[in-house]
Design a protein around this nucleic acid. Structure first.
Lengths: 190, 190
DNA sequence: CAATATTATTAAACAGTGGTCAATTACAGG
DNA sequence: CCTGTAATTGACCACTGTTTAATAATATTG
């Protein structure tokens, strides 16, 4: 009946992403429908398809931002004034804390299997891992090999993957996280 | 038109599970529909609902069996005639091998987020972990604490979780798996 | 053996999904 | 003012999980 709303209230990628993010974070990828997002925005779902190719693309646009957030967290730690061993500890804990503080982001970034989404997800994880790996390499005085760094990452990921679904906060499990990290540091003689 | 087929070809939980399993293993939970399973069985999808309450219950029935399979693998290793250190290595590698050899089972058991499924999934993981944890405790001469065992599990899980989605076989990554396990054993002085 | 009760199945329906598209209107520029 | 384009609608498609009345094959009973 009335296509095209007045220009002030016009839809934009930004507006859609804001609403979509809060829904995805609350309810997860599968249980948020395009219609739900549109309803929240007071639009029809068709309108979203004008701004995004499909659900996966919309989702991926959010994930991309999430990876930047993680990169930011890690980089901030690297800039801080601590000893190398301490920085190393903080990097590992920082990764876990990120996962627990943004469980749905973590879910999106590292745990979503959905094929459509997975196909978009390429550079994000690789690039973040690159940063992670490089940091560890440098902080270990370049004495540790690539296989080992990868193992450390997988071990940290195992922790984050399990606990980001547990509903617990980082505070709830910070003791466990610290002992997990200590164990891993011991494994690489740090 | 013709409800109830002849008794020899009657549907059963077993028959449904066989077909469902092979489909789920090939295509994953989300992309296998009740209609697809029914079609494969040459029945209408409604018939499945006579034998299973819903998709999640059917799925869970499979998962339950998968956990038994994993338990079997671990128990077999424990019965073998190796030194304790070697057994420990084999348990950790066995867990990873299980994940890579049955990636969709592993997905189902430890990685599926679907709420319906998750709600059914309670005792399975706990019980399998119990076996895992007890084995490690004993094989370490009871010198290792519970937190540490849990960390080891999470680290192994991290490996399995990532690689069971990579499409690679256990052979492809067995070298990496072995070095991962070695690292963890070093962390607990074994 | 006949009547009846139970069991297994179908087919149709429901409300929801992601996605497409012609029609339509609000706006921008000439 | 006219025209072209940009943004939105709403109807539609094929699909999903789930429910349910009707029904035919079997099992049980008298």
């Amino acid at each position: 009946m009335t296509p095209r709303k007045s220009v002030e209230t016009e839809l934009s990628r930004e507006r859609i992403m804001d609403t979509a993010r809060s829904l995805f974070v609350k309810e997860g990828y599968q249980s948020v429908s395009m219609r739900k997002i549109a309803k929240e925005l007071d639009y029809t779902h068709g309108a979203i398809y004008y701004h995004f190719e499909n659900k996966a693309e919309l989702f991926y646009a959010l994930v991309k931002e999430d990876f930047s957030l993680l990169d930011g967290v890690l980089e901030k730690i690297l800039r801080q004034d601590f000893g190398e061993r301490e920085k190393l500890r903080k990097i590992l804990l920082g990764f876990i804390e990120f996962g627990l503080t943004h469980p749905n982001h973590y879910e999106i970034m590292f745990l979503t299997r959905d094929e459509d989404v997975q196909s978009h997800l390429k550079k994000g994880p690789d690039q973040s891992y690159e940063l992670f790996a490089h940091a560890i390499y440098e902080l270990c005085g370049r004495k540790v090999n690539m296989k080992t760094i990868w193992s450390i990452f997988l071990s940290i990921h195992g922790f984050a993957a399990v606990y980001c679904r547990s509903g617990q906060t980082y505070e709830d499990v910070s003791d466990l996280a610290e002992s997990h990290v200590s164990l891993l540091l011991k494994a690489i003689d740090m």
